[in-house]
Design a protein around this nucleic acid. Structure first.
Lengths: 147, 147
DNA sequence: CCTTGAGGTGAAGTTCGCTTGAGGTTCGAG
DNA sequence: CTCGAACCTCAAGCGAACTTCACCTCAAGG
């Protein structure tokens, strides 16, 4: 046990990601593997980190394509250091903050609507943020944040 | 102006939702419309509230299918009161709180990882929550919250 | 040696939330 | 009455993120 490399099944068990998904990730260039003489994948243990980073990034709401770009920025040639990984994580941190902020605002707005019992097109900030729509004729337009 | 009903184009402009999406919502049973003699849709103004509720619910992370279920729980026959809408909004409130909590936890965990510079499979709570995996043999399994 | 289960490939299928396209109809201003 | 914009339906397409399928090979235990 504790061998140098992992089979796809082992990586799947360890990461909680299905083998089919791991192959898919490989096609997208998110992870990579050496091959045995019989063409089977053998993963370096460091790939586990990459898989982990992928899943965490997805939770943050990043697309696989963007995750690939981020992973591409890791130093080629040498095994990424902890500091390399930390740098990537920091990049996501801001996005995470922003998402949390947006959801918080949504919750507050929703609270406001519950408070006034309205969901009203006339008064609710969810519908008529800053009354900025009044100039465009009668009736509010529903404008929700694009992201 | 300020007529009793809205054409699909008017509802689209007011709600910020494309006509094609509104037709799609109708197929799913999220909204409904009367028809003119010439088969064109005419929306009651209250449909604007339904559309708004749909978009807000999507922001909360609810699927169209669940939104339909929620809308189905509105009283049939009479126009929903503000209190009816408030009840629906309250139901989402908990989900929103939960999502915010999860993202917050993810952020904290990510902070921890940045702090220790690790993304380590041995130490990081993101990977080995509560050390509960130690019993299942050597090596941690990546376990992220299902939702 | 034989079997069995893990692995491999490529193509096609799935779900979600819409959009696009083709081809035809209706509405309302002039 | 005419004309163009807006509307209609139905079917197909799209992109993301995978899974499933058919079919074939490889690796290890009895």
């Amino acid at each position: 046990m504790h061998e140098a490399t992992l089979t796809i099944g082992q990586l799947a068990d360890r990461s909680g990601v299905a083998p089919s998904a791991l192959r898919y990730y490989e096609r997208l260039g998110l992870i990579s593997a050496a091959r045995t003489g019989g063409n089977q994948r053998r993963y370096a243990r460091t790939e586990l980190r990459r898989v982990a980073f992928v899943r965490i990034s997805q939770q943050v709401g990043v697309s696989l394509d963007e995750i690939r770009e981020a992973l591409d920025s890791l130093p080629a040639g040498r095994t990424p250091t902890p500091e390399d990984w930390a740098a990537l994580s920091r990049a996501w941190r801001d996005r995470l903050d922003e998402r949390i902020r947006l959801l918080g605002k949504l919750r507050d707005d929703l609270d406001g609507c519950i408070g006034c019992g309205c969901l009203s097109l006339q008064r609710c900030t969810l519908y008529n943020p800053g009354d900025s729509l009044a100039a465009e004729g009668p009736g509010a337009r529903l404008v929700l944040p694009r992201d």
